[in-house]
Deep mutational scan, measured.
Amino acid sequence: AVSDRLIGRKGVVMEAISPQNSALVKVDGETWRATSGTVLDVGEEVSVKAIEGVKLVVEKLE
């Protein structure tokens, strides 16, 4: 799938994300809905860990 190429890519949080709420991230110039197990604020850099349906699963870039 096209989205599989995004695993391992870096992105930027466009809307705050919490474990209860998905929000938008920008990866390679494209906007995607994403979820995370932690709270992520706007502007934080993230890494794509997986794809669940049409959502990216991201975590904060260390």
Score class of each variant (00 low, 15 high):
I17H: 13
V54A: 13
A23F: 15
L24A: 05
I51T: 04
W32P: 00
A34W: 04
L24K: 06
A1R: 10
L56G: 00
T35D: 07
T35C: 14
T31Q: 08
A50K: 07
R9P: 01
E44D: 15
G8P: 02
G53I: 03
G8H: 04
A34Q: 02
E52I: 13
E15Y: 09
V12H: 06
L24I: 09
G53M: 03
V48H: 00
E44M: 14
A50E: 05
V2H: 10
G8V: 03
I7W: 04
A1G: 11
R33E: 14
K55I: 15
R9G: 04
W32D: 00
K26F: 13
R9C: 10
D4W: 08
G8N: 05
I7E: 00
S3E: 07
D41Q: 14
V2M: 12
E15A: 11
G11H: 01
I7A: 03
E59L: 05
D28Y: 03
A23R: 03
G37L: 14
G8S: 03
V27F: 04
R9D: 02
V13Q: 00
S22Y: 14
V27M: 03
D28C: 14
D41Y: 15
T31L: 15
G53E: 03
A23L: 15
N21E: 09
L56M: 05
I51E: 01
T35S: 08
L40Y: 04
S18M: 08
G11P: 03
W32N: 00
D4Q: 13
N21D: 08
T31C: 15
V27Q: 02
S36F: 06
V57M: 05
S47C: 15
V57P: 00
A1W: 13
E15M: 11
V58W: 00
L61C: 08
E15P: 04
S18V: 07
T38N: 09
V46H: 01
K10V: 13
V27T: 01
A34I: 04
V46A: 01
A1V: 11
Q20S: 12
T31S: 09
R33K: 10
G11R: 00
V27S: 02
K49I: 15
E44G: 05
L61A: 08
L40Q: 02
K60L: 07
V13C: 05
I51C: 05
S22H: 12
V27R: 01
S47H: 11
E62M: 12
K55A: 10
V2P: 15
V12S: 04
E30V: 10
W32E: 00
V27C: 04
L40V: 06
M14E: 05
R5N: 08
V54M: 14
A16W: 15
G8I: 02
R9W: 06
G43A: 03
I7L: 09
S36N: 04
V48M: 01
S36Y: 07
V25H: 01
L61M: 09
A16D: 04
G11W: 01
K10C: 13
L40W: 04
V2R: 09
V13F: 02
L6Y: 06
V27W: 03
K26D: 07
A23H: 07
L56W: 00
L61W: 12
G43Y: 04
K49P: 01
A34D: 01
D41W: 14
K55E: 12
E30Q: 11
D28M: 07
V58G: 00
A23M: 15
